[in-house]
Design a protein around this nucleic acid. Structure first.
Lengths: 221, 221
DNA sequence: AGACTAACCTAACACTGTAAGGTCGTCCAG
DNA sequence: CTGGACGACCTTACAGTGTTAGGTTAGTCT
């Protein structure tokens, strides 16, 4: 075969096929040859559409990052906006857990990420946070989201639970993991996010005293 | 050469050489052949000491994890213990940033991690937290630490800063990154950790009312 | 002394990402 | 309508990967 009448491949098709393979078989098990095979094609043909494997993975990463919602920073109060951002961010990562290691270790300078960072920083400063603090808050929430995705219980924890119950008595209560690991992950994420926001709210009064939240806190204290 | 008079290799030597190579050249650039070359030996010889590459990397991960300090859970109050744990954990990861992607994606069932989890869980329950909540708090702090290591600003962010200043006005203040990226990472980590602990403290009264912290909060409220 | 094991070696396998260059279909300029 | 450029596939091949098999010899144990 040489050039086919109608193209067999395009970026979207390659992207979706690859993501499906990653989701089902894991990141490490996916090679250019296997992607090509799944598409009924030979590996070098993929290079007509992507310069190399990293560019393909980056592109997949971009499509995942598109589902992150930062619109709240234009409309809602800063706490709600952070919540919306964090939850949609976590949901996007949790949808493709096998991509998380790649997303986490690739530098954070994908195009959408900068738009998002700008929206977040703008929203927080408009809400009264000093620019430097806005940067720190943005990084903090990112830590929480990425940490919850990377250090997930669900991402393989204990294989033979029974042996541990004797050796680690304090953990016995925490077990029956694996079945409810996803639940623990979800609850931990909510706990750390909400506790962080509450702790942050206490600090808000000092920075932006002319707001609802600050007033509430001042009256209460 | 066959078997040498005195062994050229041992696990510690291999481990430290490999870690040094990872620290200086990055995880991806380190292969069994390069490790062997650095040791004046051929790659297959390494398999006399480690079953495979993952076992070697796991061993390195264990030595890094040994520097995590969970002794506070036996002596200090729960907040101080969490702080000590989180900071020493972060410091251990920050010492070898190139190992973080591997540590993060490898399952959390290394031997030391279970001892640590047991100590943490035990300390929190003794302090009055319900077992389930203790699990969630442990996971939360882990998220913060791992997230701060993985999503680090210092781990390569912006390459050409100048172009961004025009396109992303809200970020302009956040810049001069790269040079003070490590500083932002450190401050963000402290912010998220301390805010989380403060938010958590508010919740403490409801669970364990007979403690100093709860009393303080009750009197204040 | 003889057997066994340990620690190195060489050679080789299957696999990886990717470069070079061939073939032919499509499209556009003259 | 034709010629050339380009695009999308192909085969072939290269360097590098983790790892296995099997050889050789030094040290250790009976």
């Amino acid at each position: 075969m040489a050039r086919p009448r109608t193209p067999l491949l395009n970026r979207e098709l390659i992207r979706e096929t690859t993501l499906r393979l990653i989701d089902t078989h894991g990141l490490a098990a996916v090679s250019m040859r296997k992607i090509a095979a799944e598409l009924g094609v030979r590996a070098p043909s993929l290079y007509s559409h992507y310069a190399n494997k990293d560019e393909l993975l980056d592109d997949i990463g971009d499509t995942i990052a598109e589902r992150v919602d930062v619109t709240g920073f234009g409309t809602d109060d800063w706490q709600s906006a952070l919540r919306t951002w964090a939850r949609s961010y976590r949901a996007a990562l949790a949808e493709h857990p096998n991509m998380v290691p790649f997303l986490a270790s690739s530098p954070g300078n994908r195009p959408g990420a900068l738009d998002a960072a700008d929206a977040i920083h703008g929203g927080l400063t408009r809400a009264g946070w000093p620019p430097r603090t806005a940067t720190l808050i943005g990084a903090s929430v990112k830590y929480i989201v990425v940490g919850s995705a990377v250090a997930s219980f669900a991402g393989g924890f204990l294989d033979d639970l029974d042996t541990y119950n004797e050796r680690y008595p304090h953990l016995s209560q925490a077990h029956r993991l694996r079945e409810n690991a996803a639940e623990i992950d979800a609850e931990s994420f909510e706990l750390v996010l909400e506790s962080f926001l509450r702790g942050l709210d206490l600090q808000y009064a000092a920075h932006a005293p002319d707001t609802e939240s600050a007033k509430r806190r001042t009256e209460a204290g």
